[in-house]
Simulated assay, not measured.
Amino acid sequence: MDLLRSDPAAGRVHGGPDRHGPAAWDFSTCANAAGPCPAAVAALQRVDPTRYPDPGYHALRERLAAWHRVEPARVVLAASASEFIQRITAVGARLSPGAVALPAHAFGDYAAAARAAGRAVTVGADPAATLRWIGEPSSPLGQDAPPPRDLSRVPTVLDSVYAPLRLGGASRWSTPDRHAAFVLHGPNKALGLCGLRGAYALAPEPEAVDWDVSAWTDALAAAEPSWPLGAHAVAMIETWTEPATQRWLAGARLTLGGWLTELRAMLEDLGFEILPSAANFLCVRPPPGAPDAAALRRHGVAVRDTTSFGLPGHWRLSAQPSAAVAALRAALRG
């Protein structure tokens, strides 16, 4: 029996670098390719890594609460969005046992966390589910789903990691809807800093739901590891709340919109079927005879095959600069 595994996440598929390292032209992640954010980089350079952060993160919690206009008790910090997914799924298995409902096409960590907690996985609006995941916009499609009609009845997580990278349309979730769900935030993608981990969620308003929010936040706090955020993650999240950072992000979205338009035009010209998306990424169906993702990788181009999302025969590609689009075109033409 093997006691050690060389690849502990062998059953999971992600974009970004693989065993061969980073691709020269990487369309496979949904990070902000117009980044990194200069203010965030400067803040990271000022960090003193010789000291622990405050283990209670009091200043950070108050800062986030003020920025989002919620009570500090509603702020749940996490080592990453993936860590929060694992933690709330495990906590929910104790507080509200039952199945976990996912979108038809969804980030694989939702299902992985459910399996790790011994929970069944169901798709869509299953009334028997006791925890629900909804993306805003979702990955891989970059599309929105409306809030469930019975939002107050079942603990629901609105994964808003890609919301800051929305390039079109408006959210289908109102402010009262958001107050009835856990809303998950992960600034690293929008800041172009995927290698830096750190996230947070806003718990529901207790009066907005029919279940005991404090029992969930207490259990999430009890299951939280000590110092889930390192000093660099604290600096990243602090910078996220600054007006200058949000102004930079607004400009970056304009840049990404232009790049995505260029990418869409090139793919349409080569016969790809393009699915609608509101985000800085989109899904496509390659035409017959197109190289597969592995062949493109040998040309230094990485795209995200979406089979693991339950969408075989498609790729997800993110907005990238013109030079990357030209490299992708050349690789597609062989």
Results as ranks from 00 to 15, higher is better:
195 G>E: 15
31 A>L: 10
128 A>C: 01
332 L>M: 08
177 D>S: 04
324 A>D: 09
96 S>H: 10
112 A>L: 15
49 P>W: 08
138 S>P: 02
42 A>H: 04
227 W>R: 15
83 E>N: 08
312 P>D: 10
308 S>H: 15
208 A>D: 03
172 R>P: 10
85 I>F: 03
227 W>F: 14
161 V>R: 11
216 W>I: 01
78 A>S: 14
31 A>C: 13
183 V>K: 02
83 E>Q: 12
178 R>M: 11
187 P>G: 07
61 R>F: 10
67 W>F: 12
159 D>I: 11
275 L>N: 04
183 V>T: 13
74 R>T: 07
285 R>I: 11
205 E>I: 05
58 H>S: 13
169 G>D: 04
139 S>V: 14
282 L>C: 09
95 L>R: 00
177 D>M: 05
282 L>K: 08
298 R>L: 14
291 P>C: 10
208 A>G: 01
123 V>N: 04
74 R>F: 03
7 D>I: 07
158 L>V: 13
92 G>F: 03
252 A>E: 10
201 A>P: 04
230 G>W: 03
108 G>E: 12
254 L>I: 08
199 A>K: 06
177 D>F: 01
26 D>W: 05
229 L>F: 02
192 G>S: 04
305 D>S: 05
46 R>V: 06
189 K>C: 08
330 A>V: 12
292 D>L: 08
180 A>W: 06
117 A>S: 07
93 A>R: 00
121 V>K: 00
107 F>A: 06
267 L>C: 13
323 A>M: 01
182 F>S: 10
93 A>Q: 05
51 R>S: 09
179 H>S: 15
107 F>V: 07
31 A>T: 10
188 N>G: 06
237 I>H: 06
14 H>R: 11
106 A>T: 08
99 A>W: 01
242 E>L: 14
16 G>Y: 08
8 P>G: 12
103 P>M: 06
45 Q>M: 12
192 G>F: 03
228 P>G: 09
279 A>P: 08
314 H>Y: 11
212 D>S: 11
245 T>V: 15
231 A>K: 03
327 A>V: 04
20 H>N: 06
202 L>D: 09
55 P>F: 05
24 A>E: 08
49 P>A: 15
295 A>E: 15
266 M>R: 15
264 R>D: 15
118 G>K: 00
317 L>D: 06
88 I>V: 12
330 A>N: 11
112 A>G: 11
145 A>W: 00
249 L>S: 04
28 S>Y: 11
156 T>Y: 01
316 R>C: 13
286 P>C: 09
283 C>A: 13
285 R>M: 08
37 C>M: 12
258 G>N: 13
12 R>W: 12
128 A>W: 01
193 L>V: 04
136 E>H: 07
314 H>E: 10
200 Y>D: 09
74 R>Y: 02
56 G>P: 02
207 E>L: 14
67 W>I: 06
308 S>W: 02
208 A>Y: 01
228 P>C: 12
